[in-house]
Amino acid sequence: MHPAASVIFFTVFSGAGFGLLILMGFATGSNATPSTAFLVVHFGLAFAMAVAGLVSSTFHLGHPERAWRALTQWRSSWLSREGVLAVLTLAVAGLYALLWVFFDKPIGLLGWISAVLALVTVYATGMIYAQIKAVQLWNRTLTPICYLLFSLAGGGLLFLMLHALFFGSAGSLLSSVAMVLLVVAWAVKIFWWISGDRIVPLSTTESATGLGKIGKTRLFEQPHTGSNYLMNEMGHHIARKHATKLRWISVGLGAVLPIILILIALPAPADALWLVLAVISHMAGMLTERWLFFAEAKHAVMTFYT
């Protein structure tokens, strides 16, 4: 599948932004003591990332001016559900933050609700891809779970970084939580890759044309000498040897380097800089992972072109 930059940016950034909202909602919903500046920066960053991602996703549309229509079909469409949930999450979390920052009224329940909504939003993002049967690599229960775990890991790392910036030290508890979230997310992702490599294609040129009853079938002539929308959109596929290298790079940048940086930052008070680097490295790893998510996926329609 064609890896469109706008969609890669959208899923990675809004994923991390919503991840931060999840952690903020749960952490502050149960224990409300932080300062106003702390709140403004935390919610500000979470909102900025989530909104930047959502705005970027509209660049992918042929008619962004009609994007509001995408909020109407939540009964049947995961893409619509994702849109509705994202708006709801931002509204509830925004209300929670406003009441707290401006009126000094932290309503813990709103925090919990926004955290749950953010969780479901990220799940819905994963389901946009996981629902597509024609792309077997995506069409698995584990796909939305990967999205959720990455969102939590990204949010955890952001939370840790902001904490260190504010209080001079990240603290061993938060550092351990962030590292556990990273390890779990990437372990599940590696399992997703390995199990994905073993997929037996559901559809073949034989089943697509029905000619398998006669014999082995192959494309003799394309419908046209040039390319077309389908080939550009669905025909993009990265060679296995490149994919393997990129997988290593994404794990290195997304998990290994951030964990090393967390460990370096741990005994060094006031060294939030290490954690800023950890966040940057993690985001680079995530962008690589998301690029591969598209570039490695094969679409059933390509059986008509091989």
């Binding site: 042929g62 962004p64 994007a67 946009i128 597509i132 049967k133 697509a208 929308y229 329609v301």
Partner: peptide
Amino acid sequence: SSCIGCGLCAWACPYGAREMDGAEKV
């Protein structure tokens, strides 16, 4: 006139029966 040109339906069709128009983006 309601289509936003997101392309998701073309992904969902296993037969390649839908194409986004390059000029109108629907």
